[in-house]
Design a protein around this nucleic acid. Structure first.
Lengths: 100, 100
DNA sequence: GCTATTGTTCGAATAATATCGAACTATGGA
DNA sequence: TCCATAGTTCGATATTATTCGAACAATAGC
């Protein structure tokens, strides 16, 4: 499967990040990634249809919030938290500090 | 004109705040309020139709981000930044620190 | 009371998102 | 090769937002 396009961190838009995180499902994915470091898409499905989950991962990826790499038949996702801290210092920590 | 309903700060949802701020127009309104402290709706119209601007103020108000009070025929808006800092510490400052 | 000013509300059109099944792609293992 | 696993993409539908003109409401001043 082909590699994903991830935006350069310098072209990540604040509005897109806020929008991506304004969805409860995507926010819960991000929270789980923050707790666990890395996870496959399947690990974050929680019983939802694959196609819906895949859509949410795409929104997060294109907003610049997560990075996805291939590993066999799986995709492994991780937060781009260090990069985000460069351009939006304190933003992700402030969001993750809110108890879900 | 009747008073506005403002949500109690304890019932303000993180998702709603992020969503409200993910719109460029609303974000620019919030930035301007942060700079100037208070402003009427007209001062923040920037040539847009009143009805559109009124809509955006409503979204911000119902998300718990601004407080609107009546003053004659005008409405005066201000950020609920102190209250937001109680429930989402560091969130608004992190967003406002990003240069628009 | 009349008029101007300020903003809200309504309604309709348009645009953007979400949802999810079905078909598809890619990898790994027997 | 055949099959299972893990996700993606497509397409259709449904929901939600945005936009903006027009009508309306409330206040101030004359």
């Amino acid at each position: 499967m082909r590699e994903y396009r991830h935006p350069q961190i310098t072209e990540v838009q604040l509005e897109s990040v806020l929008y991506a995180l304004s969805d409860p499902i995507r926010l819960s994915i991000v929270r789980q990634l923050a707790r666990e470091g890395e996870a496959t898409c399947a690990a974050l499905e929680n019983g939802r249809p694959k196609s819906s989950v895949s859509h949410h991962f795409r929104v997060l990826r294109e907003a610049g919030i997560i990075k996805t790499r291939n590993d066999g038949t799986s995709r492994i996702n991780e937060l781009r938290d260090n990069e985000l801290a460069e351009i939006f210092p304190g933003l992700l920590p402030a969001i993750l500090a809110v108890r879900g």
